[in-house]
């Protein structure tokens, strides 16, 4: 707890465990199985709608960029339009999530990924061997990759605008925008593939983005400093099985 980046006066209060249905045959029989809401509906909807948009951008972008794929579908004008309009919409999910009253947890997430404490840097440098007690809801890798994805998406968005509507700009900048757009797309692809790889190798974390919940044991192991940072889930009583 000492290492948490946002020590919170509420202590463990914010981490009210939820009792699982009694018939759950958990290894820790006798004690109730515990779980915690990691992502509420807003966070999950924003994540998956953004994922669908980024996936369609990747697909249409590949058709525009890779000659042999472009050959398969053709219809360059239509593919280009689909890519451009998906790109215009890329921030719509996160803005819709952040700006509404339903976005308190999401806003808190965005705040949390801003800072890295010294123990978190140790964790990063030791590739996860040290400083585990400092880990909050998001580990330092997640914090950095979130910022990298956001930064790259901003760059892709802005350069995309220049490519499509920048006719009034000097040609050098349009060429530059095309180049930066291509480089950023490759960088984003790398980060997203890493993100998917980590998700597939961490089933509990992945499941929490689907169902919202993580086991309490997962919190102890992967996010010990998260305790006390979160609101208890609204549906703590009688949550769906």
């Amino acid at each position: 707890m000492a290492a948490t980046t946002h020590p919170s006066p509420e202590g463990a209060e914010g981490h009210r465990p939820a009792a699982a249905p009694a018939k759950g045959a958990e290894p820790g029989a006798g004690r109730p199985a515990l779980r915690t809401l990691r992502f509420d509906l807003t966070e999950r909807v924003v994540h998956w709608t953004s994922a669908v948009v980024v996936l369609s951008l990747t697909a249409t972008g590949a058709f525009l960029y890779v000659p042999s794929l472009g050959t398969l579908v053709g219809h360059r004008l239509a593919v280009e339009d689909a890519h451009v309009w998906a790109g215009v919409a890329v921030f719509a999910p996160v803005l819709g999530g952040v700006l509404g009253p339903w976005g308190r947890r999401l806003r808190h997430d965005l705040h949390q990924v801003r800072d890295l404490g010294p123990d978190e840097l140790d964790w990063l440098r030791s590739l996860g061997r040290l400083g585990r007690s400092a880990l909050g809801k998001f580990n330092p890798g997640q914090k950095l990759s979130t910022n990298a994805m956001a930064g790259l998406l901003v760059v892709l968005f802005a350069t995309g605008l220049v490519m499509r509507w920048g006719n009034f700009m000097p040609v050098g900048m349009r060429t530059g925008a095309t180049f930066v757009h291509d480089v950023s797309a490759f960088a984003l692809l790398a980060v997203v593939l890493g993100h998917i790889g980590f998700a597939l190798s961490h089933p509990n974390a992945l499941r929490s983005m689907v169902t919202g919940w993580v086991p309490a044991r997962w919190v102890q192991r992967h996010a010990p400093a998260w305790q006390g940072e979160e609101l208890p889930p609204r549906s703590a009583r009688g949550e769906p099985r």
Binding site: P7, R114, D115, N147, G151, A158, V162, G176, F179
Partner: peptide, 27 residues
């Protein structure tokens, strides 16, 4: 906590800045 630095935000701003510079000098 002491020693906490906004590294996440710096990464974000760094990427955006690099993108802008790359666009201007991209040719």
């Amino acid at each position: 906590a002491p020693g906490t630095r906004p590294l996440g935000r710096r990464l974000f701003l760094g990427i955006v800045g690099a993108g802008a510079i790359g666009t201007v000098f991209g040719q």
